[in-house]
Structures are given as structure tokens and as C-alpha cells.
Nucleic acid binder design. Sequence first.
DNA 1: CCTTTGAATTTAGCATACTATCTGGTATAC
DNA 2: GTATACCAGATAGTATGCTAAATTCAAAGG
Lengths: 258, 258
Amino acid sequence: MSVETLKRKAYAIIQTKLLDGELRAGDVVSEQALADEIGISRTPIREAIGQLQIEGLFDKKPRSGTVVRLPDQQELCDLYDVREALESHAAGKAAPLLVRDDFNALASLHKEFKDLARELKARRLEYLDEAMLHRFFSADVSFHLLIVRAAHNARALQIISEFRVIQRVFEYERMAHGPRLVENAVAQHGAILAALKSGDGEAAHDAMAAHIRGSKEYAMQSFERRPRGTLDIKERPALPPDVALHLENMRVKNLVKN
Amino acid sequence: MSVETLKRKAYAIIQTKLLDGELRAGDVVSEQALADEIGISRTPIREAIGQLQIEGLFDKKPRSGTVVRLPDQQELCDLYDVREALESHAAGKAAPLLVRDDFNALASLHKEFKDLARELKARRLEYLDEAMLHRFFSADVSFHLLIVRAAHNARALQIISEFRVIQRVFEYERMAHGPRLVENAVAQHGAILAALKSGDGEAAHDAMAAHIRGSKEYAMQSFERRPRGTLDIKERPALPPDVALHLENMRVKNLVKN
DNA sequence: CCTTTGAATTTAGCATACTATCTGGTATAC
DNA sequence: GTATACCAGATAGTATGCTAAATTCAAAGG
């Protein structure tokens, strides 16, 4: 593969800051400041930030500043839908392809959820503390990516991997991480694992879809108290300009004909 | 939204070159040459090329050159799988959301396929000529994106839109565009449209999935004569480094325990 | 004729310089 | 006291300069 370029280095550093919560939603980032901190020039920083912006992590106002973007409800909803489609598809494909090592790893991760649930109960905590939160996130991401990887689809894996960062930013910011979340994780990941073990692709597909729909609903609760009507008028996303043009031409042509 | 920046301009120009077949697989692109041609400096060109590389359209060898990438069989296969998952999901969601205008547009596009099939037969051509090819591609892309847009998922639309470019590069390069392709398009798009008209999400989902699987098989024929064994040892794609590390730690911990 | 080698050229990665624009604060006018 | 106009600083967009690496090609050697 390619050499380790400064752009990659910068990208990795910034992504880590996001994953660790060192950079949180709303924080402003300055190209110059980052460049000084890492000890390189602005150029590779710019390229890294550019990529992260494309991935939806930064909001960039020209000549003004760049801030860490907090995904809104619509965006998060979209993201979970894409995950549902891709990951359930992947789970179905992965079912017959998993090997012993995979099951061992998945079982370990499942056990991690159970440990966390037990610990939470034993310590009578209302929410996961920072350390537990980190364990929870790591296990969750690993569980899902392991399955997607087994489906042998690099593109899908890349897309899902990308999502994990933006989702993490959101989770740091808004989600309540109480016992219900952990208990759901235990039950639903357990169901997925069981379906995979039985080698039943369709069951794995459905279990994964159900789990992600559940996670979505859980995440959506963070928005419950929002002003009504903000989202009811869902605007359709815009088509690429050339496609929009093609459709418009076709519409006009038809109007003329009639 | 953002101002029209030179980066965007450069991106649009290069993408258009790819879509129009002006840049084809294997062609080398030089930052300097493009900069001179467009009349701007290398910097925004670099950023645009960088984005297109992330999207999988360019292969960039450090300090050597950038070439238009021809997706290999594995990659194309992955891409169709992602499309199958996302677009069938989208079709299911879109079914109850389509409005009259959408059906009009979809019907026009379907008619375009029928026209092409008739024309092909009338002129006794073995393959679509350049102009017909262009009409075919445009109609196909529009048909699919229209449906995805109706599902109200900006992220999914973005992903699928991105794919169309890489797919186009491949189609220009390798695919045979004969009557069977067009007839399949007529039949399968017809089936999708019918399912959507009936408002039956599940039927639309299945019709879309079947269509994309069909397209995939058609595309895969371009590789039939390839050296055997090249793809049988499918390597698993790599996990992001932090996730791989987490799994490794967990594995080691378990080994120690036992 | 083929191979090797090395210099010239081209390439992209990175650093730096410049500028239009935005932001925030302050002073001034009312 | 409030609002406005303006100035200073900061920011990202873009241009340019520099360098290391890779490619190319021709000349030298076999």
C-alpha cells in the first residue's frame, strides 16, 4: 500500500481525538493550531480535515472556521437506516463464513456486555462511568465490524467503519447510557450470535436488523423533547446536478408532447 | 450552503470527464496539467483528486502519478452487493412515499428503455452506439436515484450517487452493451415500477434486489475469461487499526485466562 | 542487439506566502 | 444607553516554491 504520508498521520490523529472525546461536538478546530500542535504544515492538515468533512464530521464555514458537527435527528436516522440495510445484509452473508476464531471473539465481546451489566447492577450505578463507557463502545464496534468483515465486502466495511466515528461523537454528546442500554446489548447481541452459530443466514439477518432498529429507537429518544414539526416536513435530499438536469429535460419534453 | 469554491469546481470538472468517458480507466492525470487546463493552481486540483481517490476512482502512487482506476472483480462485486442492500431497502421505504410526479418520471425513463430496445432492433445493431449508450446510462442512473431519493435518506443517496461514477468508468471500459442488457432493463425496471405503483414495499424491495443481482451477474461476465484462482482466496478486508487492536487484546487476555 | 546506468525530467508531498472574507470588539454617533 | 461603523485579528482558500522520489530515455558498455 501507500507510504505513511503526513496526511494519513494527521487524519489518524484527528480521528483519534474524536473517538476519545477529546474533540466534542461544537468544538472549533483551527488548521493552524493543529498544524502547530502536530508539528507539520497546514497543507496535510487541510487534506485530513477535508476528508473528515466529507464523512460528515466537520462543518466548515469558508474563511471562518471549522467545528465538530453534531448530527441532527434526520442525519442520525439516515445513518441507522443505512446500517440496518448494510449490516443485516452482511450478517446474512457472514453466517456461513464465520470460523472458530470469529465465534470465540464474538463470545468474548458478548461476555464483555454481560460483565458490564453485572458490574452496573453490583455498583448500583445509574449510568456507565467513563471507563465502562469506553469498554462498551469498543466492544460494540468490534462486534459489529467483525461480522461485517466476515461478509468479505471491503466497501461495506469501509462505510460502516466510517459511521462509527460520527456515531461516537453523538453518543458522547447526547446519549444516556443506563442499564437498559446494556441489557439490550446483552440480549440483542446474544440473539445475533445465536443465529450466526446456527448458520441460519436469514435469522442472522433479521436479528441484526431488529437490533439496529432497536438501537436507533434508543438513540432517537435523545431528541424526544425537541420542538415539534421540525422534522415532519422532511425535505427530499438533492440529486446530483447532472441527474437533476436529465430528469428536468425529460419532464419538459413530456410536457411539450402533451 | 457553501460558496462555489475552486475545489468544487475542479471536482465537478474531473467527475464530468469521468462520466463522459473523456477520462477512461488507465489514463494518467497530472495535477499540473489539469491546473493549467482549468486555469487554477494545483492546490484545489489536489484536493479534488484526493476526494475522488477516497471514492475509489483514482489510484495514486506517491511521487509518481495518478491513474484512473479500473475496479477489479472483487471490488465491483462488493459495490453491487452494497447497492443491492441499500437500494432494495430504499425501494421498500420509497413505495408508500412516491408521488404522481415520481411515477411520471419513472414511466418516462422506462419508456426510454423501451425506445432504446425498439431502436436497437429496428436498426439491427449488435451494440448500442455512443449516443444510445449515453441515453441508456442516464436513464438507468436517474431511475435508480429517483427511487433512492424518495426514501428520504440523504446518506444512502450520497453513497449510491458516488457509486455511479465508478460504475460508469467500468461500463465504458469493459461491458458489452447488447440487446440483452436493454431487454433486461426494460423487464426489470418495469417490474420495479409495477411493484412501486401497487404500493407494495416488500414487492418493490424484492424486485429491486433481483434487478441489481441480475445487473451484477451481467457485469461479472466481463471477467469470465480471467485466470482461475485469482479470486477464490478471498482475503478478508482489514479492520480499522484501533478495532483490530482491541480484538487482539481481548484474544490474548482470553488465552492467558485458559 | 541487449543490458545497464545515470542524468534529466516529471511527479506528487509538503511548506510557505498571500489574500479575501469573516468575526469580535471598540469607539463613535445619536 | 443603544446602535452602528469601523478596525484589528483570525481563518480558510488559493497560489507558489521547494524537495524527494520515481520514471524515462539515451548513452555507454557488454
